[in-house]
Each structure stands twice: as structure tokens, then as C-alpha cells.
Design a protein around this nucleic acid. Structure first.
Lengths: 248, 248
DNA sequence: CGGCTGATTGATCCCGGTCAAATGAGGTGG
DNA sequence: CCACCTCATTTGACCGGGATCAATCAGCCG
């Protein structure tokens, strides 16, 4: 499917999300929409969009698919430091720094909009509310980053994986990607292991433990959480860091 | 010592640091200086300046002392998610979110400037370069946050502690707090344990291991790193995430 | 059917947690 | 000045969560 056949509905997640962060005027939504449409891009699964050390010259807004930010150590150990879901954006403002400190890759095929810096700055200058929305995007992403530090530093494996699943649910819900108690889980166990700081083997066993406790159902690339509150208890989940997702 | 007797030299770290992030005009430095002087505050060691869930209505710029951002789990487990050193600031822009997702506490007695939101916004509006400098401050802090995720998720204890010490050195150096190969280390081993996701006992043993390898000397609240490059090798340290500290 | 990637299982090891106690180092009051 | 208290550091013993290595199984694709 060529890009030209994509209709404007692909922009929905991004517009909905930014509008949740800051209620946008009709004009703001319109100018956002046209900026997004100008830079539409596709990528396959497992592609690096930008690498550690690269200069940043554009803002990317994800429209579909799962991406991640990651860093690797010399000897190959990889840590996924955050996921990026539809509606979220990469590196608003990051071009203020000379180069990027981490890499961004697709975990699934993805559609995103690549807005070049001058275009983005024009967009921000044209509507202060929109600028605030992108600023909030950055702040929320940093709050998530802090919670990941807690997850990696102080939760044991079961809590850690449970917490990740709770967070994924809460982040996917406002962009309409959670259906009842299920969402897709399009990534490999290796990816989940790298996000939780566990080995693949132990991640697999942790999943089985969560299954045995009936806290999750995970098969056919679909994650079902029959009782989200129960999972949150198991995860020692405290929702305050994601508050902005619950506004809409 | 009452605040009135503090002379302007206490502002040096903050001005120097922001000037490193973005070269500031003389006027920008002057207006920054007066804003900082207006809100001078002192705090003892171990005080919470703001707690998770509190609304944010001001920006704090640290002038002396060590602070930390931390989060706790219900059962008391604590994770320090970042340190805040002299010259750095807390929560520029954080007032855009309804409440704070983490707590900030002093680890030592501290002096800081508390700039109320309207005052801060006036300051930003008056000089775009200054606004960019604070924006960079936020971006660098987020980059550090990501590196901490790698540290907690993928480095073993010795590497982890070594990495923390390398980072502390690199962050303290540009504000003049590293003397040759030494800096003060005013925090307890409990604090270091909470920052590295280790238990106090194991942190203590890890310190001994680093001492035995002659990678550090730590006594009398002073940390000496005889060979920083060697410590960086042991830490699998990659400097890219702190690039902005090396500009000045 | 063979090759490949991802999920799963088994066996073993060790890093780092936990519990408990000892040692030091201020700080305070008699 | 010393006795005492508190907090931080250090040590010892033991245990267990999670890593590692290796093999097997299950889809999927050409």
C-alpha cells in the first residue's frame, strides 16, 4: 500500500494524544494535521530510525506500530529504555542537543511522520498550546523513564514484568488500542527481556508464573489481562506517573 | 549564616552551567542572576523539598549541596532515580503537568533558588537563549535518566558502581567541584545502594572490590579516582550521553 | 523437506539478597 | 573526660533469584 492511499485516519492517534495533553483549537489540529501529512513515512520491523551519536534534525511522530529507544554496551548487552507507541513522538526538542544519546528502532512495521526541524519550529511558533502539548509529551516520557529506573532497580522479576504490562495497557488505551481486556503484543520475548533487564530464559519463566497465577493470558501475539487491578497489585503499580494519559 | 550574607559567588555554579549549555549574553546572565538571588533558600540534610503527587509551582536551581530524585514502593523499597548537583535545576517546565511523579530530597545541607512559575516564565520570555538553556538542562537530565536504566538493567554490581562514580565525576567537574582526581562524597552507602539498585551490604562489598582493584580510594567522605580512564573501562562507560557537560 | 527464528525446558552455577552481629565514629549529657 | 547512644560501615553465614549453557520443540517460509 503506497503512502498516498493512506487516508487521514492514520493521524488519529497522534492528534488524539496531543489533544489529551493540551486541548487543541480546531486551527491547531488542522495545522498539526497538515504538518503530519507532509512527512509520512513507513518502516519495516527491526529498522533503526536513528542511532546513538547521530545529529537530530527532525521530530518523528509515530502513527502506528511499536518502536523502542535502546542503548547497547560494547559487549552487546542491550537495554530497551522505553517503548514508543502510536500517538507518541520521538525527540521533540532533541535537536537542541548536538547528537542523540540513544538509538530508536522499530519493533514492528510502523508508520510515522517525520517533521523536519524548521517545519516543526514553525508549527510550534504558530500555536503556543501545541508547543505546550509537545512539551508535555517530553515531560511524560521522562516520568516514564524514571518509573523504569524504579522497575529495573527495585522490583523483582514477576513484579517487573507485571508492571510493564500494566504500563503498556495504560499507554495503549487512550489511543484506542486496548479492546476490553486485550491488546496486541507484537514483540518477541527477547524484546521484553531487554526492556525488563532479564534474560530471555528467565523472562519466559516469569511469563509462565504470571499465567499460572491467572494474571495474564498471552498467546497468538495477544495479551489479555483478565483483572487489571489484580495485576497492578502484583506489580506494586502506582499510577501517578502516567496521569496525563487519563485526562481524555 | 543568614542568607543576606551570602554573596553572589554562590550563584556561580548555576550561571556557569547554563552558560555551558547555551552561551548567554551579559544581559541574560544579569537577569538570571537577579532571578536567582530573589529566591534563595537553605535546607538541611535529608529534607524533602517536594513530594510525589504535589503540584509544582516553581523551578528550583541548586547552588550547593547534593539532592536526589527518588521514588518509593509501598513496602518501603526506595530507588534514587537521579542525583541533582550544584548548577543543575529541578523541574524546569514540570509545572505543565498537574503533579510531580517523584520526590526530591536533599542528601546534604543545600542552598538553592526557588523561582516561582510566573517569575520563571517572565525570565524565559525575556531571553530565548536562556529558555533554550533550561530546555537543554531538561534534555540532558533525561539522557542521564536513560543511561541509568541501562546501568540498572544491564550492568553487574561492580560495573554499576564504577559507572555511577564516573558519571558523578563528569557532572561535578564543570562546576569546579573536582579537584585533580578527587571530589567529596557526602552521601551514605545506603544512598549509593538506593541509586544503584543494590543492597547496602552488597554495595559495601562492591566498594571493597573497587578499592582492591585500585580503581577508587574512598575514605573520609572523599572519593579519589587515581585513573579515571581505567575506571571507565571497568564501567563500560560511554560518554556520549553527557556530551553537554564537556562543552565549557 | 530443510533451515530459521522464537518459545520452552532442564541442569547447574553464582551474584547479590537477607539476616545477624560486630566494629567505628561522632554527638551528647552527666 | 568518659559513658552512652545512635547511625554508618563492615563482616560472616546462608540462601535463593535469576543467569548461563544447552537441548528440544513449534511455526513459518522457501
Amino acid at each position: 500500500m503506497p503512502l498516498s492511499t493512506l487516508d487521514r485516519s492514520v493521524l488519529e492517534p497522534a492528534i488524539r494524544r496531543l489533544n489529551t495533553l493540551r486541548p487543541l483549537s480546531a486551527e491547531a489540529r488542522a495545522s498539526l494535521q497538515s504538518a503530519l501529512l507532509e512527512g509520512l513515512q513507513r518502516a519495516g520491523a527491526g529498522e533503526d530510525l536513528i542511532n546513538e551519536g547521530d545529529p537530530v534534525d527532525s521530530v518523528r511522530v509515530v502513527l502506528s506500530g511499536w518502536l523502542c529507544r535502546y542503548k547497547t554496551l560494547e559487549d552487546g548487552r542491550r537495554q530497551i529504555v522505553n517503548f514508543i507507541f502510536p500517538g507518541e513522538s520521538c525527540d521533540a526538542h532533541a535537536f537542541l542537543l548536538p547528537t542523540l544519546d540513544h538509538s530508536i528502532a522499530t519493533l514492528t512495521p510502523a508508520v510515522y511522520s517525520d517533521i523536519k526541524r524548521p517545519r516543526f519550529e514553525r508549527l510550534m511558533a504558530g500555536d503556543p498550546t501545541l508547543a505546550e502539548a509537545f512539551q508535555c509529551e517530553t515531560l511524560v516520557s521522562t516520568a516514564i523513564q524514571r518509573e523504569w529506573a524504579v522497575n529495573l532497580g527495585r522490583r523483582v522479576a514477576v513484579e517487573r514484568v507485571a508492571h510493564l504490562f500494566c504500563e503498556i495497557f495504560e499507554r495503549l488505551r487512550p489511543v484506542g488500542m486496548v479492546d476490553r481486556s486485550s491488546c496486541i503484543m507484537p514483540v518477541t520475548q527477547m524484546d521484553l527481556a531487554d526492556a525488563t533487564g532479564l534474560s530471555v530464559v528467565h523472562l519466559n519463566r516469569t511469563l509462565q508464573e504470571l499465567r499460572a497465577a491467572s494474571l495474564i493470558v498471552l498467546r497468538d501475539r495477544t495479551l489479555t489481562i483478565p483483572d487489571l487491578d489484580a495485576l497492578k497489585v502484583a506489580a506494586l503499580y502506582s499510577p501517578s506517573y502516567l496521569q496525563l494519559y487519563r485526562r481524555g
